[in-house]
C-alpha cells in the first residue's frame, strides 16, 4: 500500500470511531496532518499514518471532526475564489472546534 503513489483520499477517524474519507489535498491544509503524512529521506522513512493513509484522532469527537472535514472541503473548493460566503458554525460547537483547530494548527499560514 505504501510503495505505489499514495491514494488521493485519506481516512480520518474520530474518538467515537466515525470514519471520514477526505481528499488528501484538502486535509493537507492542516500543517499537522501534512507533517503526519510526509515521507522523508531516500528510504522514504515515514510513520504509521503515512503508510496506511488512516489518521486516528482519539481526542476529537465525530461531531467535531465532521465539522472539521466540512471545513477542509469548504476551504479546498473555494481556495481560488473571492467573496466566499461564511461557513455555518453551530454555536454549541464553538469551543471544541476552536480547540481542534488549535491542535491541527489550522490558523498557521502554510
Amino acid at each position: 500500500m505504501d510503495d505505489s503513489a499514495p491514494s488521493r483520499y485519506i481516512t480520518l477517524v474520530s474518538s467515537d470511531d466515525f470514519e471520514f474519507v477526505v481528499l488528501r489535498d484538502a486535509a493537507m491544509i492542516s500543517p499537522m496532518i501534512k507533517s503526519m503524512l510526509e515521507r522523508r529521506g531516500p528510504a522514504g522513512m515515514s510513520l504509521l499514518e503515512a503508510q496506511t493513509g488512516r489518521c486516528a484522532f482519539p481526542e476529537i469527537t465525530g461531531q467535531v471532526l465532521e465539522k472539521v472535514v466540512e471545513y477542509f472541503h469548504y476551504w479546498y473548493k473555494n481556495r481560488n475564489r473571492e467573496d466566499v460566503p461564511d461557513m455555518d458554525i453551530p454555536v454549541e460547537l464553538c469551543l471544541e472546534l476552536l480547540m481542534a483547530a488549535d491542535y491541527l494548527q489550522l490558523d498557521s499560514k502554510s
Binding site: M36, M45, L48, C55, A56
Partner: peptide, 12 residues
C-alpha cells in the same frame, strides 16, 4: 530508522 510502528498522532 525504526519508525514503522510509530504513530504520528500519538507522539504529537
Amino acid at each position: 530508522k525504526n519508525t514503522g510502528s510509530l504513530t504520528f498522532e500519538q507522539l504529537y
